[in-house]
Amino acid sequence: MNDTNYVKIFSGSFVYAQMIINRLEEVGIRAVVKDESESGRLAGFGSPIQGFQDIFVSEEELTKAIPIIEIAKSDLEAEKNPD
């Protein structure tokens, strides 16, 4: 992959982020994960929000990633609010 810009497509808990990352990988999208709490821990600082992650994809893959994120968010909402 050449130099590209990345776009944040999701922010949330580690568990949900991992689910989304797995779905993206299934279709060949390589996501970048930013975990402030882990970065802070490694640097010796604390973080008020543990396990919170941001997921980024390249602009080139954004069009392919959006439907996957929308489905994943719908699944998450359905999980949170079962009938």
Rank of each mutant, 00 (worst) to 15 (best):
D75A: 08
T63Q: 15
P48C: 04
Q50P: 06
Q50I: 15
I68P: 01
I55F: 00
S37F: 09
N81F: 15
G46K: 10
E79I: 15
G44E: 13
E60Q: 13
F45W: 13
D54W: 04
P67S: 01
S74I: 08
I71R: 07
R41S: 09
K73P: 07
E61K: 05
G44D: 13
S37C: 13
E70G: 00
K80L: 14
E38Q: 13
P67N: 01
R41F: 08
F45C: 10
Q50R: 10
K80V: 09
A72V: 15
F45K: 14
Q50M: 12
S47A: 03
T63W: 08
F45Q: 12
A78P: 03
E59T: 06
G46D: 07
S47C: 05
F52C: 05
K64H: 09
E59Q: 07
E38T: 11
S37Y: 10
K73Q: 13
A72E: 11
S74V: 10
A43Y: 06
P67G: 00
G46Y: 04
Q50D: 12
E59N: 06
D54G: 00
Q53A: 03
E61C: 03
K64M: 03
L62W: 03
I66Y: 05
K80T: 06
I66A: 09
E70I: 07
Q50G: 08
L42G: 12
S39D: 11
R41V: 05
S39P: 00
I55M: 03
A78R: 11
N81G: 09
I49C: 04
P67Q: 02
E38N: 09
